[in-house]
Computed example of a mutant assay.
Amino acid sequence: MPIVRSAKFAVGDIVRHRLFDFRGVIYDIDPIFANSEAWYEAIPIDIRPPKDQPFYHLLAENSENSYVAYVSQQNLVPDDSEIPVSHPSIEQLFHKDSNGGYQLRSRH
């Protein structure tokens, strides 16, 4: 049985990818890899992450696009830029709290 690590980030956290130039807001967390084998095998072997760690669903963006991303914990770092994420689905899933953070809406 794989060793499951604790999630380092939470829903609503803004994170940045460690290797690639994109950032986003976490909207869901899988305790271990839960995507397709084809998706996993498409990752180059030299950067393929182990499956026994949390994987995060992000409303992601880069300088050109907004999209949904699925990223391993080892490849995420906190984004401390204080720049809001402008993904078009943010308003559907989150509302801003009094501190400017993202709180999941009770209904979405």
Results as ranks from 00 to 15, higher is better:
33 F>C: 03
53 Q>K: 00
24 G>I: 02
92 Q>I: 11
94 F>N: 09
9 F>D: 06
15 V>S: 04
52 D>R: 04
98 S>C: 08
55 F>K: 03
87 H>K: 07
14 I>D: 10
74 Q>N: 11
91 E>F: 12
70 Y>R: 07
43 I>H: 01
44 P>C: 03
88 P>G: 05
61 E>N: 02
101 G>D: 13
63 S>A: 12
45 I>R: 13
25 V>R: 03
48 R>F: 00
97 D>S: 02
74 Q>W: 08
53 Q>H: 01
92 Q>A: 14
21 D>C: 07
86 S>L: 13
88 P>C: 04
18 R>V: 10
12 G>C: 08
59 L>H: 03
67 Y>C: 06
70 Y>A: 03
83 I>A: 06
89 S>E: 15
89 S>P: 02
64 E>W: 04
82 E>F: 13
1 M>S: 13
20 F>R: 11
107 R>C: 14
32 I>H: 06
52 D>P: 04
35 N>V: 00
86 S>R: 14
108 H>R: 13
18 R>C: 09
23 R>H: 12
9 F>K: 05
8 K>P: 05
66 S>H: 10
70 Y>W: 05
16 R>H: 10
35 N>F: 00
3 I>Y: 12
71 V>F: 03
46 D>F: 06
106 S>C: 11
36 S>D: 03
104 L>N: 07
32 I>N: 07
69 A>S: 07
106 S>W: 13
30 D>F: 06
75 N>S: 11
107 R>V: 15
32 I>E: 14
33 F>L: 03
57 H>R: 09
87 H>V: 06
60 A>S: 04
28 D>A: 15
69 A>Y: 02
9 F>Q: 04
42 A>C: 07
6 S>Q: 15
98 S>D: 13
72 S>E: 10
7 A>K: 11
34 A>K: 01
23 R>I: 11
18 R>E: 12
7 A>M: 09
36 S>T: 09
86 S>M: 14
101 G>V: 05
33 F>M: 01
40 Y>M: 01
18 R>A: 11
83 I>W: 00
73 Q>N: 07
86 S>E: 12
14 I>C: 15
37 E>G: 03
96 K>R: 15
77 V>H: 09
84 P>H: 08
22 F>M: 02
11 V>G: 07
22 F>K: 02
73 Q>T: 05
69 A>G: 03
59 L>A: 04
25 V>E: 06
5 R>I: 13
105 R>H: 02
12 G>P: 08
74 Q>D: 15
62 N>C: 04
37 E>W: 00
62 N>M: 04
96 K>L: 10
98 S>G: 11
72 S>F: 06
95 H>P: 08
105 R>T: 02
31 P>C: 08
5 R>W: 11
79 D>A: 07
7 A>N: 14
60 A>L: 00
98 S>N: 08
93 L>V: 11
94 F>E: 05
